[in-house]
Amino acid sequence: MTARRLVELLGLPLVALVLVAAVLGVQVAQGGGTYEPLRPADPCAERAVTSRADGIDGLTERIVLLGVDAAACRLGTSREALTLRLAQREDPTDAEVDALRAGLRDAVRRLGDDGDLPPASELADEALAAADLNRFVEAALRALPDSVVDGALDTEDVLLRAVDELDVRALLDDLDDPDALEAAVSAAVQQAVRDALLDRLRDLF
């Protein structure tokens, strides 16, 4: 076979091979083939959560974010899949409700262990403003020194009690109603504070 015949037979195939290899090589090197949607992170892996909000709102957001992670881990699903399921379905299953409550408790404990829970006195003003109390009672409570508040109320204990008080199923029903949500959380926190104070008094006597 002459060199000229060889060029005629192999010239175009070689040019084509080089062109295809070059195009695919550049695309793969630039991330082609991995251009896919974000994969959900492992909910069982520890994740740092932050909030743009301060005070009780910020604390609540962090507890909810960590709580949903922990609940998803318990249910063997992703945080995103669980969130979508809870947001889209009318009636969550008992397993989901139980996992969510347990997840919220895990979240409170984790924040407590990490030293990320503020003392009760830091949250007291905001909690009193949100609570529907008699003006004189509210003024009296505001007059208490921080050390007394912090001595009487342990934030982690109050939050764990509040999680137990929460009607998680009703809360999920009210996801699209911020006022109802706030009222439900506030009621649970007030009840938790009352229970914590009563238990503290019982311990004193």
């Binding site: 195939p13 084509a16 091979l17 295809v20 695919l24 695309q27 082609g32 251009y35």
Partner: peptide, 16 residues
Amino acid sequence: FLVAGGLVGLAVPPSA
């Protein structure tokens, strides 16, 4: 072959 190569290229773009 070129058509096949081009279609593989369209299957793996690095962005939109």
